[in-house]
């Protein structure tokens, strides 16, 4: 069962990554990227690396998304 779940999560990862590449609206891209990071954190949890998963959720998703949003607010939103 976990195998299937993992496979699904990985598929989501790819979808998110492709979505980030194609979405023209930067804010949406950042949101997609955050979900990418969260899914990544879940996968790492599945792969028995909870410490990494926590850091990814906090830094890789939270802080980076925050920074990106801040940067977009200071520049422009559309690509």
């Amino acid at each position: 069962m976990t195998e299937v779940l993992n496979a699904l999560l990985l598929a989501f990862l790819i979808v998110c990554a492709v979505g980030v590449a194609y979405i023209r609206d930067l804010l949406s891209a950042v949101i997609l990227f955050s979900s990418f990071g969260l899914i990544m954190a879940v996968i790492w949890q599945q792969l028995s690396a909870p410490d990494v998963a926590m850091v990814e959720a906090a830094l890789g998703t939270g802080v980076v998304a925050l920074l990106l949003v801040a940067a977009i607010s200071k520049t422009e939103r559309a690509e």
Partner: peptide, 17 residues
């Protein structure tokens, strides 16, 4: 350029994966 930075993060995350 912001897209480039996001993509850079995706790239890094994939290596970590």
């Amino acid at each position: 350029m912001i897209k480039k930075v996001i993509a850079m993060n995706i790239m890094d995350a994939s290596v970590f994966l």
